[in-house]
Design a protein around this nucleic acid. Structure first.
Length: 958
RNA sequence: GCCCUGAUGGUGGAAUGGUAGACACGAGGGACUUAAAAUCCCUUGGCCUUUACGGCUGUGCGGGUUCGAGUCCCGCUUGGGGCACCA
């Protein structure tokens, strides 16, 4: 029987669906294993061959773990909310719900063809009310929580209210927007609204007036990770900075835990490093600088401001101070005669977009006319305003040490400010600063403290101690990680379960969730600039009846407006992994029982592009869920693998410039010219190019303008194209659709080939040409069991013959290699081992059931359809998924003789055959014989030999 | 600028410090076939001599450690990624 992959794959996919072969339930008799893929955003373009790479890898692992006796949870779902569906809706008027449904259906069809072992009963979609109920629920929990720095944990906001009522802010160590000082009496005297405003300073989900990335083109704000080089990640539109009142998540409160958690998880170091960079912990000192009183009234009251520095050791070298343009201190220190000049500068800064500010690294700034006192030297130093100091980091004010900081140096040079060297060494301060991380201090002593002669590290410590003891400042840790901006002025996202009473937000009662996304007449923002939900008529909250009502009724006493923004993309994707463990639970995000059993993700696979977005938010969200005792683990993803990108391999046909004449590439000269005329490379669709040879007829059919093109082929009648590796994309005509591959070669071949391409983490170009090797392998594999000429005689080549020693050796060698490789996701080398083993067994004419049955189990994770079919042909009624992964028995691997290569004098080599159980003594004896031979041949003397177990005996000649 | 990563044939890629190039593609040659497809066999890093189961050279470049380095150390060149007026 021939290997008819089409029938086999269709039949088994049907059978798996009918029997729910991959449905899993809690089973305490088996160890659990949770294998997860990052769920896709179902775009209109469908899947290309790059998308399934990670899914195939995780599928192999899932199947392998199941064969090893684990209860494997391997779910799939859709990240269905997002901008593209909404942009499409604005352009076409099609409801995003409809396009999303269509895209999901298409994705599902494509995924099903590849034969994944997903438990589809657990599918989640972020846009479904039953799912986003829990996204909203989590948001409410965050709203009603604050972060206690002493406990390092989120706590119910009621506990904070008690504390404020009992002792005000005294003894409070919590994450907050501003450090407030309130007495218990003051708290009690506040109105409800004032109390609510105060609490907003502490909530984990809070409404904050912050500097945001505003993208006018998209009409929404964006999170930091959605902005790349000053333009939006989606669409590449310009982004500007704006003060806006927005929902934020206090991710920064978790900065230290997010950083510490990295130590406990099995991720690539590079990825952990990326997250550490993003979190950006820096340990330093906050120090107060007093302002010298001038004609500004604020300075009369002994005004001082705080700066942050990681180099407290350089305080002797501070020759000026710099404030960020947005700093509130600017207005307080500026002198009357400088006011106009400073105002003009602030104005100019405001007008610049974030992009301009990032791009132009020119030195700008203006003197405020004010002076501060260096607390160490007691000297008066000028206070400047400059945009190189960022308002959002530290305190928005710095002490400038031009000798040892390149930015301060550039500023000092530009404005002619003094530069004092503090570190011994041979450097020229006219050339640039000396940004030393080590060295010995000089010029750093007064009657109170002497740093001279100390190294940088010690002097930082000494200065910290001095500053703390003299109440000049305190030791402080700063993080680059900012709070996540959580509002989007868009339609296609989760609505906030929030209504506004007296201008303050309140959450909907828990039993009223989900708050469903309303229908709108228009997906665009309203004319008054409100987000699209402003177009919804049924969008007000009746507090008494606890239901959504018409917004025309808002004047009534119990009816209030609902929030008009929706949540960002990462809201729905932050806790989906835990929802999969209990997807149909309407009482809770996840039951204690399900979380207890399934716990966190053992293996998570996905692209690298989520390193600073999803993977930070998700970890944050999980930590919060742990704090409120919904999940038990601190980290959501124990092991993570980033699959590499599959790049496209584009093909180009040379076209004579300005004509419709195409010339085979091998006819061009070195300059790419044909008969003296220059040519241009034109992208052609890779799907009708075999290796480099283009199918000219298909090319003509491809696009009407090429139907009559003049095509010049080479002497063999072939048209040769050129190739280049590029990103796989429609516009480059290098997209390969997995459906086409399944059609032509089958899903098993696609799976094998994708894994055979190379290490899973590496990016590599897709070239369909190589797929023949994978296809041939499967045909050979099939032929071990089936004779192509014997129709309707399943597994005719398999019998009950005793396996030979060679058979056993080939099989067990394979078991050992494949098991080891799958454990470390080295699927490419595992498949190579299969190819070798199949060739060996074929040569051995192996027909022993004992061997071939185990071989089927081994291939099952890689080529599940074929494995099922062969397993069935071998007479099994159960699915191969429930077979047992074979164990390697070392006894079959023992060689009867071992070849010991012996290298003498660097070049001369001998091979010594020895019994497998030869010990070091036997080897030495053999080596002595080799020495004799060598002496006889060259008359040189042996002086030394080394015995390396198992491998090689090396002899040195002197 | 700082921090990660990688660099091996025509191509994708193998090699616990131990015979570099497994496995596969492509290419060349051959067998079978009326022919094609399919299948099978041989050759295939480069360069010399081909009398050989021969010699030389070879893992981005330059040093070093070692009996022995693609692998470890130091210094470069270069591709990819992250962070970036973060004090």
């Amino acid at each position: 029987m021939e290997y008819n992959f089409k029938d086999i794959e269709a039949a088994w996919q049907q059978r798996w669906r009918d029997d729910k072969t991959y449905k899993v339930e809690i089973d305490h008799s088996k160890p659990k294993c949770y294998v997860l893929d990052m769920f896709p955003y179902p775009s209109g373009a469908g899947l290309h061959v790059g998308h399934p790479l990670g899914y195939i890898a995780s599928d192999i692992y899932s199947r392998y773990k199941r064969l090893q006796g684990c209860n494997v949870l391997h779910p799939m779902g859709y990240d269905a909310y997002g901008l593209p569906a909404e942009q499409y809706a604005i352009q076409t008027g099609q409801h995003p719900h409809i396009t999303t449904e269509q895209n999901i259906a298409r994705y599902r069809e494509q995924l099903d063809r590849i034969g994944f072992c997903f438990d589809w009963d657990r599918e989640v979609r972020t846009c479904e009310p039953g799912y986003y109920k829990w996204t909203q629920w989590a948001f409410c929990q965050m709203f009603h929580s604050y972060y206690d720095n002493d406990l390092q944990q989120a706590q119910p906001i009621a506990r904070l209210e008690q504390h404020l009522a009992a002792q005000g802010t005294e003894g409070l160590n919590v994450a907050c927007g501003k450090e407030l000082t309130i007495t218990a009496a003051e708290w009690k005297a506040m109105s409800t609204k004032e109390q609510q405003q105060t609490l907003m300073n502490y909530r984990i989900a809070y409404l904050g007036e912050t500097m945001v990335n505003w993208c006018p083109e998209l009409g929404t704000v964006l999170a930091n990770d959605e902005v790349i080089n000053g333009v939006s990640e989606r669409g590449g539109y310009p982004v500007e900075q704006r003060m806006m009142r927005q929902w934020c998540l206090r991710v920064s409160a978790y900065a230290q835990r997010l950083r510490d958690g990295l130590e406990t998880i099995d991720w690539r170091d590079a990825l952990k490093e990326t997250q550490r960079n993003w979190i950006g912990r820096s340990e330093g000192t906050e120090a107060q600088f007093k302002v010298v009183p001038n004609d500004n009234p604020a300075t009369q009251e002994g005004l001082e401001f705080t700066i942050f520095t990681t180099h407290a050791d350089t305080m002797f070298g501070v020759t000026f101070m710099v404030l960020a343009p947005e700093s509130k201190y600017v207005q307080q220190v500026v002198t009357a005669d400088k006011k106009a000049e400073v105002e003009a500068y602030l104005d100019a800064c405001k007008r610049k977009t974030e992009r301009d500010r990032q791009a132009a690294h020119e030195v700008t700034g203006v003197f405020t006319g004010a002076y501060a006192i260096n607390p160490i030297t007691g000297e008066n130093i000028p206070i400047w305003v400059a945009e190189y100091v960022l308002a959002g980091y530290g305190t928005g004010a710095i002490m400038a040490v031009p000798a040892h900081d390149s930015r301060d140096w550039a500023f000092a040079k530009h404005f002619n400010l003094p530069i004092i060297p503090l570190i011994e060494g041979d450097y020229d301060l006219n050339e640039g600063s000396f940004d030393a991380k080590e060295g010995v201090m000089k010029n750093s002593a007064n009657s109170q403290i002497n740093l001279n002669g100390l190294c940088v590290k010690d002097s930082i410590a000494a200065m910290k101690k001095y500053v703390t003891e003299h109440h000049l400042g305190r030791v402080k840790v700063n993080y680059r990680l900012r709070d996540a901006i959580f509002s989007r002025q868009r339609y296609w996202g989760e609505p906030f379960p929030i209504y506004y009473k007296d201008g303050m937000p309140y959450t909907l009662p828990e039993e009223c969730l989900p708050l469903q996304l309303p229908e709108v007449s228009e997906f665009k923002p309203t004319k008054t600039g409100e987000p699209p939900l402003g177009n919804a008529q049924l969008w007000a909250w009746d507090e008494a009846k606890k239901q959504v009502v018409d917004k025309a009724l808002i004047d009534q006493k119990t009816i209030f407006p609902l929030e008009l923004c929706t949540m960002p993309g990462f809201a729905g994707s932050s806790a989906y992994y835990t929802r999969y463990t209990d997807p149909h639970n309407s009482e809770a995000l996840v039951s204690a029982e399900a979380n207890q059993y399934w716990d966190n993700v053992d293996l998570y696979l996905g692209g690298n592009e989520h390193a600073t977005g999803h993977l930070i938010y998700s970890r944050f969200w999980n930590k919060f869920l742990k704090d409120i005792k919904v999940v038990k683990s601190e980290e959501p993803f124990k092991k993570l693998i980033n699959q590499g990108m599959i790049q496209g391999s584009s093909r180009f046909a040379a076209r004579v410039s300005g004509t419709n004449k195409f010339v085979s590439a091998d006819l061009l000269d070195a300059n790419g010219c044909y008969e003296g005329a220059s040519t241009d490379p034109i992208h052609v669709d890779v799907n009708f190019v075999n290796n480099l040879d283009m199918d000219v007829e298909a090319f003509r059919r491809w696009r009407p303008e090429f139907a009559d093109a003049e095509v010049v082929c080479n002497a063999d009648g072939k048209f040769v194209t050129t190739a280049a590796v590029e990103k796989m994309s429609k516009s480059k005509y290098n997209v390969v659709n997995p459906d086409d591959i399944c059609e032509k070669y089958g899903a098993d071949t696609l799976r094998i080939y994708e894994m055979f391409l190379g290490p899973i983490e590496q990016s590599k170009p897709w070239d369909t040409a190589g797929i023949d090797g994978a296809y041939r392998f499967l045909k050979k594999f099939w032929a071990l069991y089936n004779d192509a000429n014997t129709e309707g005689n399943p597994c005719c080549k398999v019998n009950d013959a005793e396996p030979s020693a060679d058979n056993l050796k080939s099989l067990h060698k394979l078991i050992k290699k494949v098991t080891a490789d799958v454990e470390v996701f080295a699927y490419n080398t595992a498949i190579s081992a299969f190819m070798v083993a199949v060739n060996e067994l074929q040569q051995q004419k192996c027909s022993s059931r004992a061997i071939l049955e185990q071989l089927v189990v081994l291939i099952a994770p890689f080529a599940p359809h074929m494995a099922e079919e062969l397993w069935h042909q071998l007479g099994h009624t159960t699915t191969v998924c429930d077979a047992q992964w074979p164990a390697c028995e070392e006894k079959y691997l023992v060689e009867s003789t071992i070849k010991y290569p012996v290298q003498i004098g660097g070049k001369m080599r001998f091979t010594i055959d020895l019994p497998a159980d030869a010990d070091a003594e036997a080897v030495k004896t053999a080596v002595l014989a080799a020495e004799d031979a060598q002496r006889w041949m060259e008359g040189k003397q042996m002086v030394k030999f080394i015995f390396v177990p198992k491998k090689i005996v090396n002899i040195v000649v002197k």
